[in-house]
Design a binder for these strands. Structure first.
Lengths: 197, 197
DNA sequence: GTCTATAGACAGATAGAC
DNA sequence: GTCTATCTGTCTATAGAC
């Protein structure tokens, strides 16, 4: 029982990184088991197939941010809190966002089953934007476009160090301190909403 | 010769859609050839393998926007033109952006060879931001973060109609007219840069 | 619960007829 | 230049020993 859970977790840990790096189809069960240091058969035994490993990732990791409901009060404070928590989540579990993004982008067969994750993730933002506009704190025209912009800003940010060595040579003094990233992100989005902050 | 080019184009057209929808690894050469209505062997014959089909996409499509250099003058005008052209390109060839995004996100073996595309695409934006700040037209602190935000805003937008049916029910009166999308995008980014527009 | 060995399907690439 | 038929490798899943 103790060992069993250990193996399941090792499989999930390996799969998380591999799926993020190589995609679902690009990752083989063999690679997952090699990474976990266990035999090939154990993915089927514990999860019943490769697909279920991916789905299990979102039940296993993503604890506080996605599970508890996002309580709304003041739109500005809410948005600040939402962005802060999201950036922190992105920092802690970049693979989860990466994989989710891939699956949605490809509209994979798994995407449908991940949709409740997407709901839980972005529905609060929608509500915040709506009530923020009603209360005159945010200024935007199209809810859909504004959602898209903010989601894009939040998701893309820091996804890959792919750009860093090539795009920004002279800006490396920028630390990647969490608080600093949060602060920059807050500022950009709040300015985009013409909101005090 | 005429027929040959026709077949190559049919293969590329099919592959573009399939790679975008199912990813490189998730797409089989058989699917590509079925979609093109040609025999399995012709991918190897004309391109020398599946990987070269993907790379050939970016030499074949993406004509004006990526090939001619982006001439810089006034940062505000340049940024306006950059965003406008990018949104238009995204509208015309959403698959190319989608595939590029996938490959980069996964840091695939193909990503390295696509890097010159990424350069050509985003280097002008970097230059625009730098000189815009120097001339006091844009206000931002971190070049890298700001690049990330803007790239995210531009890339994510409109990638998938996945959110539409679920997120935004009451905003469907928003047309997806190109000019309107451009206008919204311009406004959000310019506000994020605290720039006149 | 974990392993090795293997079954069965399917991948990409190619040989050879036309 | 295009086709069909096939080779070789690798995939996922599972049977059976321990």
């Amino acid at each position: 029982m103790q060992d069993s859970k250990d193996v399941k977790l090792k499989i999930l840990d390996g799969a998380k990184v591999l799926f993020a790096q190589k995609g679902f189809e690009g990752t083989t069960v063999r690679q997952i088991c090699d990474q976990a240091g266990v035999a090939l058969a154990l993915v089927s035994y514990h999860f019943g197939g490769k697909e279920n490993v991916l789905l299990a990732l979102y039940d296993t990791f993503a604890p506080q941010f996605l599970q508890e409901p996002f309580v709304l009060s003041d739109p500005e404070q809410d948005l600040r809190r939402f962005i802060t928590e999201f950036v922190r989540f992105r920092r802690e579990e970049p693979e989860l966002i990466n994989i989710l993004q891939q699956e949605i982008m490809m509209q994979s067969p798994r995407a449908e089953k991940l949709q409740k994750c997407v709901f839980a993730l972005w529905m609060p933002l929608r509500e915040i934007l709506i009530s923020g506009k009603e209360q005159g704190q945010f200024e935007y025209e199209s809810l859909r476009h504004t959602l898209n912009f903010i989601v894009g800003t939040l998701i893309f940010s820091r996804v890959h160090s792919f750009f860093d060595p090539v795009f920004v040579q002279d800006d490396i003094k920028d630390k990647d301190e969490l608080e600093e990233v949060v602060e920059h992100t807050l500022r950009f989005i709040f300015k985009g909403l013409q909101a005090a902050h």
